[in-house]
Design a protein around this nucleic acid. Structure first.
Length: 373
DNA sequence: AAGCTGTGCAACCGCCCCCCA
DNA sequence: TTGGGGGGCGGTTGCACAGCT
């Protein structure tokens, strides 16, 4: 049995709203409110529109204080960082941007930001292809296969970033963390449970989740006091909000490899980064990461997805350490290091050594903010 | 100038969740 | 406890406009 339509499809007007319809809807809601029933609203007003259409028109266009177009760089940053963290949860992202609607942000992402990012990547790849073609022309064609693919611009459809040998090594060296049972309490709830995720997000963002009224209260990140060692400088989202996975990934790849729980599982390593494993990232970002992992997260603004950065950690004293020696680093990592595992192409054994049994720590990594997380 | 292509955005569609009778 | 209805959300579509050939 099919679902009953919310309105009489044959007798409702579709398509663009006229100024008269806008005026009717706006003045009615301003005088009387929605009455908590969008379906009944058009009849009351005398509009031949579906209630859902009225709701959408009000929320996305007629509602006061709506901003259209002209996204600032700061807004770009927030959208990008949240997109990396939570994916296409436009309503949550919109909640962080006053005056913006989920529809607006969704459109902005699909038409501008995404193409900007992927366009940049394509340009980069084209440049490398051109450069390689030049090399090929200049060198003996028989040498082509021996040219090392050094980075970054590998087309992962043709050449997997994770070498097969490494994948095997990783499989034996790393067990998949069970977030729901993890002894690292901050991973609890990372099980696609929408409510749990939202609660976690609220907490991580320094907000308060009103479970009675299901009402998230967010506060900006600059109101958060960070845990030891972590500063707004090395997180570099100072005027933004701190996304869930940002914190998690920051913690995952930091300090003295306290990444093993009592079961010997590697706490928090995002299995999505392993070839063939499920991902916590949206496909296009996964594509960016798998083809160009070193460049996915940089430090500033838009560049944080594709900008340059140094392969270094930030230590407690402000000095830096090379990523390939991350086990020796004792500080929180930069944003730029969040998705940077040891340089596996150059030394597959590093990760196994880094995370080998002998490096297991007794206490799982814990981190908290002053708001009780 | 006309046709084509790309872009931006408003609006719709359909699914899912939650509330309430 | 359960099923229907409304609200909310993400994905998609279609149209208008601008830029290019």
């Amino acid at each position: 049995m099919g679902r009953a339509p919310c309105c009489d499809k044959a007798n409702v007007k579709k398509g663009p709203w006229s100024p008269e319809e806008d005026a009717k809807l706006k003045s009615y809601i301003e005088r009387n409110g929605t009455g908590g029933n969008w379906i009944a609203l058009p009849q009351k007003i005398g509009l031949k529109r579906c209630g859902k259409s009225c709701r959408l028109r009000w929320l996305n266009y007629l509602r006061p204080n709506i901003k259209h177009g002209g996204f600032s760089e700061e807004e770009d940053r927030i959208i990008l960082s949240l997109y990396v963290s939570i994916g296409s949860r436009w309503s949550i992202i919109a909640a962080q941007l006053p005056g913006r609607t989920d529809n607006d942000i969704k459109n902005y992402w699909n038409t501008r930001l995404k193409t900007k990012l992927l366009g940049k990547q394509r340009r980069d790849q084209q440049q490398v292809r051109k450069a390689n073609n030049l090399i090929i022309k200049q060198e003996d064609h028989r040498l082509v296969d021996s040219i090392p693919i050094t980075s970054s611009f590998v087309n992962h459809n043709q050449i997997p970033y994770w070498p097969p040998q490494l994948t095997t090594n990783l499989t034996s060296a790393i067990s998949i963390p069970n977030y729901s049972n993890s002894s690292c309490e901050n991973y609890q709830g990372l099980n696609n449970d929408h409510t749990s995720l939202r609660k976690l997000l609220m907490k991580v963002n320094g907000g308060h989740y009103d479970s009675v009224n299901n009402n998230p209260q967010l506060i900006p990140i600059h109101n958060i006091t960070y845990p030891n060692n972590i500063t707004q400088t090395n997180i570099n989202l100072s005027n933004s909000t701190l996304p869930l996975d940002t914190m998690i990934r920051t913690c995952e790849l930091t300090n003295n490899s306290t990444n093993f729980n009592h079961q010997g599982e590697l706490e928090g390593v995002r299995i999505g980064m392993m070839e063939g494993q499920s991902s916590t990232f949206p496909p296009e970002l996964e594509e960016l990461m798998s083809s160009n992992p070193q460049r996915v997260v940089a430090e500033d603004g838009l560049e944080f997805l594709y900008g340059d950065y140094g392969n270094s950690f930030v230590n407690n004293d402000g000095s830096t350490s090379d990523t390939t020696t991350c086990g020796e680093s004792s500080g929180w990592v930069k944003m730029s290091s969040l998705v940077t595992l040891p340089n596996l192409e150059s030394d597959c054994s590093v990760l196994v050594q880094e995370f080998g049994e002998e490096n297991r720590f007794e206490e799982p990594l814990r981190y908290s903010s002053t708001n009780g997380l």
